[in-house]
Amino acid sequence: MNDDSVTLDSADAPVMGIDETIIKIDDLSFSYDLGKTNTLRNISLDIPAGKVTAFIGPSGCGKSTLLRCLNRMNDLVDTAKVTTGKISILDQDINAPDVEAIELRKHVGMVFQKYNPFPKSIYENVAYGLRVQGIKNKGVLDEAVEESLKKSALWSEVKDRLDSSALGLSGGQQQRLCIARTIAVKPQIVLMDEPCSALDPIATARIEELIAELRQEFTIVIVTHNMQQATRVSDRTAFFYLGELIEYADTAKIFGNPSKKQTEDYVSGRFG
């Protein structure tokens, strides 16, 4: 991986056909306090490759926690612990002892609620993930930066000022930059934790367009509590309530004809 000649296509990972299960969550319980209380309880869920899956639910229902389990960001909390069950991504248990969280995160990228570009130039932000993988070749980096910025629909806006600080961009641009930064490492899965909650409606619309573009290349899991957004961007939707998965189905079904009473109450705005 420290070799510059490495191709950027994740050739070493198995190629998945659309609709094949890429993430398999099996009876997962998770705790933030070493198992005293479970934040997530017995969740089982299969996420298909090449689609957009939305997690919805009221605040504190555990949807963000589950998302952070998927690339083991919860490792940063000392007392976090998976109490039961397992998560398999690409048929591999990600909590197995021989799994390297760092390696996992290269395959499972993440975009955060509040856009958080580094206080570096635009170029360096996008190139960051590649640089930490040891790629130094300027040509490879240039190409990857351009490609990622194009894919995230930012290229035309920033191509003349790649060397200026990323903090000078508008909020929506910064968030798209974060997406560009994430896809530059060519992950197979992109996790998005309420990517639009800090943005105005116009910027939100652009991000949603972008998600629609990106679904062709990446499997996307998005947490949102904007139900319209879920209907607009996602193929499948999972509804969580109080740390449990209530219902998981095609988006059209969840919003049109939910099978559970709680789901119906929530999507019709009766609580949450």
Partner: peptide, 16 residues
């Protein structure tokens, strides 16, 4: 063997 677990560190260098 490789495709079985894609998340094993491909090189130990960074870890070391």
């Amino acid at each position: 063997e490789e495709s079985k677990n894609p998340f094993v560190a491909s090189s130990n260098r960074q870890k070391i």
